[in-house]
């Protein structure tokens, strides 16, 4: 089993990818995941998910198994194989 990372909305369209899987040797944090994603997607996720001070940018959602990481350990939330991370900018209008 691998760590599953899924992209939705503009992330999926911009990257022309619906996600990626990583076989992890040990647990990593969301921060470390963003670094891995940056390597595979040319720095895209730091730009989209993080503010210049390194905090999570408003308007982007990082879910670990359906839970918003803001309510977990934020960027220090640990993830492992079998977890699913969902990344998307939620739609706010009506």
């Amino acid at each position: 089993m691998a760590l599953i990372v899924k992209f939705f909305s503009l992330f999926k369209i911009n990257l022309k990818s619906s996600g990626i899987e990583y076989e992890l040797k040990e647990q990593i944090t969301i921060s470390e995941l963003i670094k891995k994603l940056d390597q595979d997607f040319d720095g895209y996720f730091t730009q989209k998910l993080l503010e210049s001070d390194g905090s999570i940018a408003p308007g982007s959602i990082i879910l670990v198994n359906g839970h918003n990481v803001i309510h977990l350990e934020a960027l220090e939330t640990e993830i492992d194989n079998q977890d699913t991370v969902t990344l998307f900018p939620p739609s706010a209008g009506g």
């Binding site: 308007g59 309510h71 939620p90």
Partner: peptide, 12 residues
């Protein structure tokens, strides 16, 4: 629980 942090400044 799901959408905390979703607020954006620009009009959708």
């Amino acid at each position: 629980d799901v959408f905390a942090g979703s607020a954006k400044k620009k009009t959708p």
